[in-house]
Design a protein around this nucleic acid. Structure first.
Lengths: 241, 241
DNA sequence: GATGTCAAAATTGCAGGCAATCTTCGTTCG
DNA sequence: CGAACGAAGATTGCCTGCAATTTTGACATC
């Protein structure tokens, strides 16, 4: 490496089966920025200046530009010509739409998965749930909440055997993530979320597509509707600035 | 700063089409490459060398790299680290999945739109259909077929008033486009496709969500299933290479 | 003849710099 | 006093050049 790659220094697990998953600088910047957006370190509407990010990571602006276009495609940032990038600021209606789209696709996937769900799948999902609840006992663990949540949901959808649809749904979940975290913070009970997940799992165990997808639909759209209202009120308060 | 901070903070104006669409070079390359992929000028699995594209358009490789990452996000090309980009080669199952995802989302949108569909909406859709059939009389017009198709479908979905979902569905349609064109070529009758569209429009006119969405579901999944089988046979034949 | 090794060519990845564009703020004119 | 104007600073868009990686193919070894 010709320059000291400060961002790549994270000794995170290889995680992929690739021999050497030595990612590009651009990809590393994507991950860092995505995490910063999801955990709220970068707020809605905040400007992302290429030069600032480049100097922060001690790299040039080229990989930063790549990362920004990538994040724009994911929907987390918005690009304006000759005026740079800002963290996407979604209207309450758009957020509701995001959750609604999740509900449509995830319920369909769950219906497809239900007949294929085996005892092992249920056991795995339960294990994820248990691990999650245990980690909750210690501290909030907001950082990794999105990963826990997704691994639980995807465990239920994976048997549907629709990889493309799954990755699409995953991206939707990433976009919902920062709002879901907000949901957890304001409702102040991750435990209730855990209970909702447990109810969903029980619904799946009935092996009835109608019951399961109805539970999932409720789970997703209620969170979306709550957030829509909450953010509408919240922004009305903070609008005059 | 103090006087204008409210304008900067309000996400009221995300982006409107600038009167002079003086797009960046990268955006221009995206359009050209996308069209080349969709109309088959660039075949599945074909390598896209940055330098070759850059010299073809007489620009540097920087905007080309931007365009490639953008197209990768759209799903039209696949990026491999340190090994460049290739035109995405989807398996028959993945193609079927793409159409299935379209069916799920578009049927939902149509159900939402049905109660809102006005006489003007039907007239507009009919006009699009008529223009399309007229242009068919002259010549094949394969180039712009995707645009016609999308303008017809989106005319039916627009009243659902879900812009984010609509843009997601639009991207799925773009990805399906090159296969749909193939479908039209091998079945050799765009007229039949026109008839299917007309039947769909009639189904919508009943204002019955069940009838309309059933017609749409059939329209989309039949094309997907046909293409899946066709490509499976086609590739088996051309496998030994 | 098959296989492993390694250097040169081809290609991608990234840095620094320059021109174009936007923003800011002081100045002038109505 | 407010609005139009314009120059300096800030920021983005793109190009050239070089380092790093992959691929190719000639050569050596078994």
């Amino acid at each position: 490496m010709h320059t000291q790659s400060s961002i790549l220094s994270t000794p995170r697990e290889p995680e992929k089966r690739s021999p050497i998953p030595r990612q590009s600088l651009g990809a590393a910047v994507v991950e860092r920025l995505r995490e910063k957006i999801l955990n709220g370190e970068l707020r809605e509407g905040e400007q992302l200046r290429q030069d600032a990010i480049a100097t922060e990571f001690q790299i040039s602006r080229i990989p930063v530009r790549e990362a920004l276009t990538h994040l724009a495609a994911e929907g987390l940032v918005t690009l304006v010509a000759n005026r740079g990038a800002v963290v996407s600021a979604l209207s309450p209606e758009e957020i509701m739409e995001l959750f609604e789209t999740r509900a449509v696709l995830e319920c369909y996937m769950l219906r497809c998965a239900i007949p294929e769900l085996s005892r092992e799948d249920f056991a795995r999902a339960e294990g994820i749930l248990r691990d999650y609840e245990e980690s909750l006992e210690k501290d909030s663990e907001m950082e990794s909440w999105g990963r826990w949540n997704w691994s639980f949901h995807s465990a239920l959808y994976a048997p549907a055997n629709r990889p493309k649809m799954l990755s699409l749904v995953k991206n939707l979940n990433v976009n919902c993530d920062r709002y879901t975290r907000l949901h957890l913070v304001v409702t102040r009970n991750q435990h209730r979320a855990g209970k909702a997940h447990r109810e969903l799992l029980e619904a799946c165990k009935t092996k009835d597509p109608e019951i399961a997808s109805a539970a999932l639909w409720k789970h997703i759209t209620e969170a979306g509707a709550y957030l829509k209202e909450f953010l509408k009120r919240h922004r009305e308060q903070h609008q005059r600035a």
